[in-house]
Nucleic acid binder design. Structure first.
Lengths: 378, 378
DNA sequence: TCGTTTGCCGAAACCGGTTTCGGGAATGCA
DNA sequence: TGCATTCCCGAAACCGGTTTCGGCAAACGA
């Protein structure tokens, strides 16, 4: 259709140099040049370097779409935005994509992005993009403990790298931050400050990270010689409102916690208004350490101490790993686990109240049910 | 290189149906099928529908990368994330991309994303992606009054659609929200509520929207029969801190404004702590109407009244327009201007103080210079 | 009725690469 | 010196499409 009338295309766009241009300049055939550039063993070392040099000199870069029709590969990384997710990760999106894009373009690759509104649609998009040669492999964020996406990818022999880990016997390529270590260290930190009642407020249990962070909390408690009290553990707290409610319930108990470990910054932010309402100061009467490093954490008073994740770096590493995987490296050689960076910003300190004192203080208060507005993050 | 060893590709992936499959099934040649599907005039109506039906039945979809090597088009929309931008628009990114992706996949197209850290790099990326057939055209966000990207695109005959407008004689395809109308209406609204001193706090002047919103403010003031007071106008206020400072300066004057129109929600959020410090209630002593519809605006007390922009819809419309443009429709037929949606959430009301009363109230206060922390949005 | 146009489709080249196949020249071994 | 390898590279097919060209048959005009 667009071929009949073309009001946009120029009369004659500057043509790129093709493989034929290179071969003619050398007095060789296309096939020789192609094999030389692709390191075929039946090309002599001399010819190989001669071709290399000439290609370099002429600025030749093979056209990815042309290669694709034979090889099935376009040199593109696939990434799918799942809008069904709670939007906690949305603000990161730009930096994450930028990270991926950086490592991609460093290798002459590009990034293909699609949006999905459900798990099923994601699976469809994955196979569609692959079969249409729009992406050679995928970066899979927010891995679940049991992830259908992984099954689909494996079944279709589509290369992928996870941001996060998953429970599976077969090895898979991944990049992840050791959230479990961070949680363990957070507990140890609070314990060292003198806290004895330490709560853990976890994220969504469907996610694999949540299991790991829980493990980390348990490990920390064990290491500190503290027992696990189930009433000091909450799950599924993704938003500020969730965190508020979970902490509220715990503070209402006989032996309220003086220290809080949150699996998510966003949930931890719910502790601030709660403390306000009870006249408690964070960093003094209540201590909190969280995880993620969201921007809002720096804006509250006192700023939230947190284990921060460099999301752009994550994207960059993931992109690099995926490209290597697509080029043939084995999954088990493509696993990177890094540590989060602790930002000590003052929201955790020595407890001014023991749990008993805290309980007494809170007992003398009208149980606040008045706090309703402003909790809902759209 | 990847051709020598291939530990990932399956023995035999399910082959897609090709144009040859279709032509053989019909007893026609590839060329006839191709021309039939592309609406060439030298194919009879009968054959055309016969081919259509068979292609449909066999689930044939032309392989974009194969088409590309002849046509130069991959059916992909290009979008570049500029990290050099102030990060105000980052949170929108996911939804914006999702919008683009929706309209793209509705037509069987995809979205190619790249990141850039400078204007110059952006220009490079644009031509590189185009010449490598990784994108057929581009969506250009945050248009400037005089935009080098537009010049580059025009010069290289690369189709594009702007999110925003620009100052240029030649017509260009765009989708935009009439920010000028919103600003005018905001002024009228405040005037109707009884405000007579109405300030305007604008965004970055390099952006084209800023000029337009300023025009809208002026138009509103004229329409309301109010004169323009240059001391009630501020520029370059992008962040909460910027908004705080600009409003602070205005409140310090002899005739402080009682009504504020902000070109950006984010800057408007700076008015809240400022009001707090002076014991003023927003929606009562100070009224404010802003523009964008960011999530944080709903969380403050009272929620910020604002002209909200549906960013996902913007992405979707832009994608649709770009595809039509690439298919041959003229730029002047591809211009859409929509209105922002006013969300009246209570931050604007009848002024409890006149400007004089407000001045008196503020005069009795210690000029606050103490407010320093928490203003910086990372 | 006959030459000419028009409508419609097949044949083949082409796009820019990759990959298979085969053979000439240089080398190995006897 | 003769024969079998091995080393290299050219020739050509191929990938899945698009586009040009040419020709046959039917419709047209005179």
């Amino acid at each position: 259709m667009s071929s009949l009338h073309d009001p946009i295309a120029p009369g004659d766009r500057a043509r790129r140099t093709t493989i034929s241009d290179v071969s003619e300049a050398l007095g060789l055939t296309k096939s020789t040049v192609s094999r030389a550039l692709n390191d075929y063993p039946d090309i002599s070392e001399g010819t190989r370097t001669r071709v290399r040099r000439m290609a370099q000199k002429m600025g030749y870069r093979p056209l990815a779409t042309a290669q694709a029709i034979r090889t099935g590969r376009v040199q593109a990384i696939g990434f799918i935005i799942e809008l069904s997710e709670h939007d906690a990760n949305r603000p990161f999106m730009a930096e994450f994509l930028a990270g991926i894009s950086r490592s991609a373009s460093a290798e002459g690759w590009t990034l293909t992005v699609a949006a999905s509104s459900s798990q099923d649609e994601t699976l469809d998009i994955i196979s569609r993009l692959r079969s249409e040669s729009k992406a050679d492999g995928f970066i899979i964020p927010r891995t679940l403990a049991h992830d259908r996406r992984i099954a689909t990818l494996r079944h279709n022999y589509i290369p992928f790298v996870m941001f996060g880990r998953t429970q599976s016997a077969e090895p898979a390529a991944f990049y992840d931050i050791a959230g479990e270590d961070a949680m363990r260290a957070a507990v140890m930190c609070l314990h060292a400050l003198g806290h004895r009642r330490i709560a853990f407020i976890n994220g969504g249990t469907q996610y694999n990270y949540s299991r790991l962070r829980m493990d980390g909390y348990r490990a920390g408690m064990a290491q500190a010689g503290l027992g696990i009290d189930p009433t000091l553990i909450a799950q599924e707290c993704l938003s500020e409102a969730d965190g508020y409610r979970a902490a509220q319930a715990m503070l209402a108990s006989d032996q309220p916690p003086t220290g809080f470990v949150f699996a998510l910054d966003r949930a931890a932010l719910g502790l601030y208004p709660l403390a306000d309402e009870h006249g408690l100061k964070i960093g003094k009467h209540l201590s909190v350490i969280a995880y993620d490093g969201v921007a809002e954490g720096a804006a509250v008073t006192p700023p939230l101490s947190t284990y921060s994740v460099d999301i752009a770096r994550a994207g960059e590493r993931l992109g690099a790993l995926l490209i290597r995987h697509i080029r043939g490296e084995a999954a088990q050689d493509l696993q990177e686990l890094e540590q989060a960076t602790f930002l000590d910003r003052g929201s955790a300190g020595p407890p001014a109240f023991t749990s008993d004192q805290l309980s007494a203080h809170l007992g003398g208060q009208i149980p606040s049910g008045a706090h309703t507005n402003g909790r809902n993050t759209t």
